[in-house]
Design a protein around this nucleic acid. Structure first.
Lengths: 341, 341
DNA sequence: GCGTTGTCTGACAACGATGTCAATCGTTAT
DNA sequence: ATAACGATTGACATCGTTGTCAGACAACGC
């Protein structure tokens, strides 16, 4: 900036004014400065600006795995939303490890991100995130952190789960199974509970069969095989997220099971699988957008009590309805076939 | 830091030494300082550190769309690799627009990223990226920027395309089609050229049928329908990336075409589609890792001439081989059926 | 001509950390 | 006891930018 000032024969301050589009600079002076900036290829040093202004114009995001499409859609929408306010997004993967998450929180706070969005790896707020929440806006997405003074954006797990169970029941599935991801993941627990409640309130027979991870290699297959044998075989399963859905699809295809699968989280091509997979769609892009908007609202001075926002889910029915109906109609025969196997 | 120094009754400089694990601090002094740091919850201000040291410990990544699994895998692997050297990754989507890409290059340079990885939106280097390449290491991934003084990491487009065409020819497919993405995308062009060359060198009959995007809505369907009718219908198509593969799968299923699809870019569940999709697998994670390693090598003082690294691809055969053989055996019958339609 | 107003510009300090270099301390050798 | 040495520690300037405040300058009314 000093170089520009020298060449333009003005003070550093004037250059600063031009760079920041501040008013009170004579147009011809501004034009001259701008010309020099162009020729020298000058860029303001954001680090220094950050230091002086005390603002970093960036937001942090901590998720489990940026390679997972669900998270990458979240990150993509947040990046878009952040950029609409000239902010950058620093996204990092904590790999589901609470201690790594804590490290990353500290690292992002050290970078003076203006806000922090977290998809918590555990249900207990770390010391690091408690400290963070005291000095900058923190938003939990997808999973809450009870006891943390922070905004939260969730999707409607109870409603989503219920819609899936009701859908299956309406198509005469009586014996349902639920396969959740790692029990440490809040959504897995929550959807598990909602599944059992829906099962009971619909008066489905017997007790619901459920499992929670983490699963050893081949364990999903074993569980499904067991559920599908015996006197009251399961005819449909609900999964708690895209990772489990994938494992179930693999198992179903490998074992050749006749099983309707309803997945949590939509995924590309679900429509073209055999059988097509009905899913509970939750919109990660919408979650991300709202989270960033929440951060900006706080930065703009909103200091109301922490809010929890619950976004609706949508059941996307794909083929399984038809197939379910078929099974329902010929149920006794089907059951006979199952018990025989 | 001043607060810590006051409480610990040492100078700011000593605190700095402790924070940076510099040697020459008496263990008991260091312990005392560390204790105060803990109680005060002090974090070094990275912006200030950045300013003084002239380094930002961050790397920039510009891609087309972070929501696309291919790019998100690239970003995820880069983030992992960058973090192994204590660096953060600033990833942004340029949405395929060269002018936005140029803006983002400037914004990242202003943030003083130490290196910049770009998946170029066009084949012509912008002024912005030329300037950037003069002051920091730039690496092009997936697509080169001819004339730019920068390292490049590509995957073997010629080899990958050839392996796909040879695979199809070996299974008696004689009439092949190629559907490329937007002609502005370098890989689409390159794979197109390689497709035509392979087609010729294998002595396949007639002229290869090819198309390049961008495609209007429904255009892919129209093209496929045309290729599959007439006297020498196409029996297999190769696509140039995951986006086109998706469009082709939708068209094939919607129109009920009997067409073998080989896709560029692997994707989850490709195995379980009907028909299963054979793909040319290129490893975005490996590309990202090498790109970041290249950046660090340059930062470590490597000033050799720009290098181009070409990573191998792998043909993942899934079912289409069997199906192709079947078509090959009953070719005349098949052709009759096709011409009849 | 002179004070007054308002516009434009510049000098300077400060943001928080670190490199440089000098000062201080505790040891050891004499 | 004292000089000499290495191990610790601290004072200060500095990185590039922006907020504060005062100075310079032109235009205006009297």
């Amino acid at each position: 900036m000093a170089d520009v000032a020298r060449q333009a024969e003005v003070s550093i301050k004037t250059v600063s004014r031009v760079v920041n589009d501040e008013e009170g600079v004579r147009p011809q002076t501004a034009a001259k400065v701008r010309a020099i900036i162009e020729t020298l290829g000058f860029h303001r040093h954001e680090g220094a600006s950050m230091l002086r202004k005390g603002r970093s114009t960036s937001i942090g995001l901590i998720v489990e795995d940026l390679g997972n499409p669900w998270y990458s859609q979240l990150a993509a929408s947040m990046e878009r939303e952040a950029r609409s306010r000239q902010h950058f997004l620093l996204s990092v993967s904590a790999e589901g490890l609470p201690e790594r998450e804590a490290e990353l929180v500290d690292a992002l706070v050290a970078r003076r991100v203006e806000g922090l969005v977290v998809v918590p790896a555990s249900s207990i707020p770390s010391e690091a995130i408690r400290r963070a929440a005291l000095q900058l806006p923190v938003v939990c997405v997808d999973r809450p952190l009870p006891g943390l003074h922070a905004d939260t954006v969730l999707s409607d797990n109870d409603g989503g789960t219920r819609s899936a169970v009701e859908h299956l029941a309406a198509h005469r599935h009586q014996h349902l199974g639920f396969l959740g991801d790692d029990a440490a993941i809040w959504t897995a627990q929550r959807r598990h509970t909602a599944f059992v409640q829906s099962y009971d309130s619909l008066g489905l027979p017997g007790r619901p069969r459920t499992a929670l991870g983490p699963y050893a290699a081949g364990e999903v297959s074993d569980i499904l095989q067991e559920w599908c044998s015996g006197t009251a075989p399961v005819t449909a399963v609900l999964t708690s997220n895209n990772r489990v859905t994938l494992a179930v699809i693999v198992a179903v295809r490998t074992l050749g099971l006749d099983l309707v699968v309803v997945g949590y989280d939509d995924f590309e091509l679900a429509e073209f699988l055999d059988p097509p997979i009905t899913v509970v769609h939750q919109d990660p892009a919408a979650l991300g957008e709202r989270a960033v908007q929440q951060i900006f609202a706080r930065l703009d001075g909103d200091d109301a009590e922490p809010r929890t926002l619950v976004l609706p889910t949508r059941l996307i029915v794909r083929g399984s309805a038809r197939r379910a109906a078929r099974i329902g109609e010929g149920r006794s025969g089907d059951r006979a076939r199952h018990t025989a196997s």
